[in-house]
């Protein structure tokens, strides 16, 4: 019998990376895509920027999937898992793009390890090497906290990806154009739930108010200027996040307006010695999340199936 007669054999033929036991497996998400950087775009900067965008999506996806078997309704569970899957797909492409732009960002694993680059980045980096904003790593809390976080995150990310679809890095532009279509669904979903909770009962409003004080202090950080981003924005490859605040405020004002909600004034979460998520300085929540996400893979860096 030819190997190709067996569906499973053809899934793992060829590349040893396909056989790693714990990863996304099966294929390079950028197979056949030209990953040459555009002239004037620094590879190291591009990799660092892709890690920011990838880590936001990866960590948010991990939080969303933690709702599986815990969501209030089956339909919401399916919705949260779908949103997580979209973000995980974006993260895979962006991690692979980071590795192609500057292979030095990929953790070095033992010789002969079957772990592909995107998985090495997801599973073998320590907390301080993650570049996600602190907003995405916060614990899920209750449904109101998760919806409030998703509203803030998807509003921010949609604004960023929409503009990034013109990036001079064609891979980034393509990932962003596709991701923006997905984010439009995520943002509508979170916004509608926010309005539903605001118009619900005293209890749902109490929880929403609590959620705002938990989540909103981490909103300012989304728009903090960042030198890598600024350098790449200057050559047309990235979006300077500090330019997105106006659009963010106008979208959330629509949601607050439609829900009769008056957002409380919250003090931004303090930086740590002037640093935050993009600098690798995180809340304690990220360590626990990474321990759960990474421990099995790290125990078996040579694991094959």
């Amino acid at each position: 019998m030819n190997d190709r007669d067996c569906a499973y054999a053809s899934l793992i033929d060829g590349d040893p990376h396909d056989q790693w036991a714990f990863g996304t497996g099966f294929e390079d998400p950028l197979a056949g895509v030209d990953t040459t950087a555009a002239p004037g775009v620094d590879g190291a900067d591009l990799a660092a920027y892709c890690l920011m965008l990838a880590d936001d999506a990866l960590i948010c996806a991990q939080r969303l999937t933690q709702w599986c078997t815990n969501a209030p309704e089956l339909e919401e569970e399916v919705a949260l898992a779908n949103i997580g899957l979209d973000l995980l797909g974006q993260a895979r492409l962006l991690l692979a793009r980071a590795a192609a732009a500057d292979p030095r960002v990929v953790p070095v694993l033992p010789d002969g390890s079957p772990v592909p680059a995107e998985d090495a980045l997801a599973f073998f980096r320590d907390e301080s090497a993650f570049r996600c904003v602190r907003l995405v790593e916060l614990a899920n809390g209750d449904f109101a906290v998760s919806m409030t976080r998703l509203l803030a995150f998807s509003t921010f990310r949609l604004a960023a990806l929409h503009r990034l679809s013109d990036s001079r890095d064609l891979v980034l532009a393509a990932v962003a154009a596709k991701g923006a279509k997905e984010l439009a669904y995520h943002r509508d979903y979170a916004a509608r739930w926010f309005i539903t909770l605001a118009g619900g009962t005293d209890e749902s409003r109490r929880r929403l108010a609590q959620a705002m004080t938990t989540v909103w202090p981490y909103v300012d950080e989304l728009f903090r200027p960042n030198p890598v981003e600024r350098r790449l924005a200057a050559v047309g490859a990235a979006v300077d996040a500090s330019t997105l605040r106006g659009e963010f405020d106008s979208v959330v004002a629509q949601v607050f307006g439609a829900s009769g909600w008056h957002p409380p004034t919250v003090r931004p979460a303090p930086l740590v010695a002037g640093k935050s998520g993009r600098d690798g300085v995180h809340t304690e929540a990220l360590g626990y999340l990474l321990a759960e996400m990474q421990s099995v893979a790290r125990a078996h860096p040579m694991g094959r199936w």
Binding site: P29, G32, V33, A177
Partner: peptide, 8 residues
């Protein structure tokens, strides 16, 4: 088999 990302 190649992947094409653009147009989405």
């Amino acid at each position: 088999v190649r992947t094409s990302l653009a147009p989405a």
